[in-house]
Design a protein around this nucleic acid. Structure first.
Lengths: 133, 133
DNA sequence: CTGAGTGCAAACGTTTTGCACTTGC
DNA sequence: GCAAGTGCAAAACGTTTGCACTCAG
């Protein structure tokens, strides 16, 4: 039984081959946008519809299997939910690197100063990566 | 002569009443999305078109007068360009607070570790604000 | 006076929906 | 067998564009 079959089932989703392929591609790309996902999934399922991709992405987001990452100046990408992390974005090759940034001190500080209950941080650092410099 | 007239002119944009009203509303709201902007600008200019708003927002972004802020789970908002800052977002009332966060240490650290030339950081902390708790 | 901006309608790209058919379980 | 998922076409959205008219400078 496929690796993703269980994951999907435990999230109240049927393990269809299309969904397994979506998850496989997201994992292998790390981060992927809808268009690239569609292009690549067609290699295996030529007749898949964009509607199916949207429905599945949305279903998996609702079931907390996936996360949308909004980026400056480009389309959102999707990733599987892992531990909390931030993103490094190259403005030239558009590659995205996951990074671990410890901003707990900052969050505590801001929480106190503003009497805010912070439960989430979205940080994108952008610039030019090593290869593109 | 209106406050915004100069700003617009120094950014190669003609100071039309519509643009002045857009800037006035953005300043008074702090952060505003397209729909709210449209609703509010109609109080003064009933016949303004959404196309005009989009054209102007885009023109002002290109001329570095405005900035788009992408937010998790909701539409982007626009703000005038000030010094670099981050955002605190309340998931209940959707209010946004500008905050100053010193992440230079973090940026230096990440830059070195990844040999990345970082020139921009987008940070949104979200949770529940004081009033909504 | 002239080029830039406005407002309308139409076009466009993206995402969602309805529905008949298929499939996972 | 039945609810859930797929794929198609159509609809719905949000945004942009073309064009005649108007206005800022």
């Amino acid at each position: 039984m496929n690796n993703y079959t269980n994951i999907l089932r435990t999230h109240n989703l049927k393990a269809t081959p299309q969904r397994i392929e979506i998850l496989t591609l997201i994992e292998s790309f790390g981060h992927i946008n809808i268009d690239t996902l569609y292009e690549n999934i067609k290699h295996k399922y030529q007749s898949i519809s964009l509607a199916t991709i949207y429905k599945n992405i949305n279903a998996m987001i609702k079931e907390k299997l996936l996360l949308e990452v909004k980026l400056p100046n480009q389309k959102s990408v999707y990733e599987t939910i892992k531990h909390n992390h931030s993103h490094l974005l190259c403005n030239k090759c558009h590659n995205i690197i996951d990074i671990d940034v410890d901003i707990n001190n900052i969050i505590d500080d801001i929480s106190n100063k503003n009497q805010f209950k912070i439960d989430k941080s979205d940080l994108v650092l952008s610039g030019i990566c090593k290869n593109c410099q």
